[in-house]
């Protein structure tokens, strides 16, 4: 399966298992989603479980909060993460706080799916990585898969989770992993081991990172598309890096990170999102606090620049192989 098929399969499995799971969003019903993630679900489960919505993100999330309060388990889709902002009030003030403010009387067991990230010439409003906004909100969990196998297992775990989960899907790697070399053809998922996805139910627990490459020289923390870009650079440069795919940003798998950085003595953080106030800052602070006496070099952050995401200048903006390579040389210098 490619990542879209894996995500589709996760929703199919959960809708089959739990009659309270409902899927909703703009174009998700009859048409099956602009990325085909919900294809076939309405035909299989009917219009009252998979339905199209008006173009209103605050409405979609507000309605999902109410459905959750009733006892359903909604899986709303926001067509692009860039368009999640009209729903921020419902996510931050309502979904994230409902359990806390009602002392558990009401909960918002919803999973907000949304394609995110750049690398597709999406320009300013089809490329953003707003995960840092959500990891800053207490009460929300934030999950970002990087392979079809993980996408399905994590999405099933997210739907089963009784807390609201923001599930960002890196759309650059829906069809195949991307190593950052935009001038080369992309290999489809079919040639990748992680495209072996079981048809039925399985889950990958939230809050658990994955060491995708073991190494001794430096720890690289990444998620989403950047996991593949980083692996490409590490292979090309022959660096003995330990690459960790965080998978869940919140709650963070701090133990895996801490053990790795204490082993390698160096830490590099890579994300597409803009730098200032980004999730990398939190990662850097955590590593600094926990691994200070093990660090042999300053923590490096390779991120998007603090600008809106540009269109024609995409490959100057995107933290690709050259920028990651330079940062690796710098951190490994001594």
């Amino acid at each position: 399966m490619n990542m879209i098929q894996a995500i589709n399969s996760a929703m199919d499995v959960m809708m089959e298992r739990d009659p309270d799971v409902v899927v909703m969003g703009e174009d998700v019903g009859y048409f099956g989603g602009v990325f085909r993630a919900t294809a076939g679900l309405q035909a299989k489960y009917g219009k009252t479980r998979v339905f199209d919505t008006p173009i209103s993100e605050c409405g979609i999330i507000g309605v999902a909060v109410g459905m959750g309060a009733y006892g359903l388990r909604p899986v709303p889709e926001i067509q692009f993460a860039d368009y999640i902002y009209p729903a921020l009030d419902q996510l931050v003030s309502e979904a994230a706080r409902l359990r806390y403010r009602s002392a558990g009387e009401f909960t918002a067991p919803m999973t907000v799916r949304s394609p995110f990230g750049g690398g597709i010439f999406g320009g300013q409003t089809h490329s953003q990585s707003p995960e840092g906004i959500f990891t800053h909100v207490s009460g929300l969990k934030t999950v970002i898969p990087s392979t079809p196998y993980d996408a399905k297992g994590l999405l099933i775990a997210a739907i089963e989770d009784n807390d609201p989960v923001i599930f960002f899907e890196p759309k650059r790697i829906y069809n195949g992993p991307f190593d950052g070399h935009y001038d080369r053809p992309v290999t489809p998922w079919a040639k990748h081991a992680s495209s072996e996805v079981p048809e039925g139910y399985y889950r990958i627990d939230l809050g658990k990172a994955k060491v995708v490459r073991e190494g001794e020289a430096v720890t690289i923390l990444a998620y989403g598309t950047m996991v593949h870009v980083v692996q490409g650079v590490v292979a090309e440069q022959g660096v003995d890096a330990e690459v960790i795919d965080l998978r869940t940003l919140l709650p963070l798998d701090i133990d895996t990170i801490e053990a790795s950085v204490k082993k390698t003595g160096r830490c590099m953080i890579v994300h597409e999102a803009t730098r200032t106030g980004g999730f990398g800052a939190e990662l850097s602070a955590q590593v600094q606090e926990r691994c200070f006496y093990h660090l042999e070099a300053p923590i490096e952050r390779v991120t998007g620049y603090d600008t809106p995401y540009p269109h024609s200048l995409e490959w100057a903006y995107f933290p690709g192989p050259v920028r990651i390579g330079e940062a690796l040389k710098k951190i490994l210098k001594d």
Binding site: V22, T48, A69, S93, E94, R101
Partner: peptide, 23 residues
């Protein structure tokens, strides 16, 4: 339902609850 300080957020939530009841 749990009252929120944020005005009118309960409006779409009520609609969602009603939709769930109907569904």
């Amino acid at each position: 339902f749990s009252i929120s300080g944020n005005l009118t957020t309960q409006y779409p939530q009520a609609v969602g609850w009603a939709m769930a009841s109907a569904a």
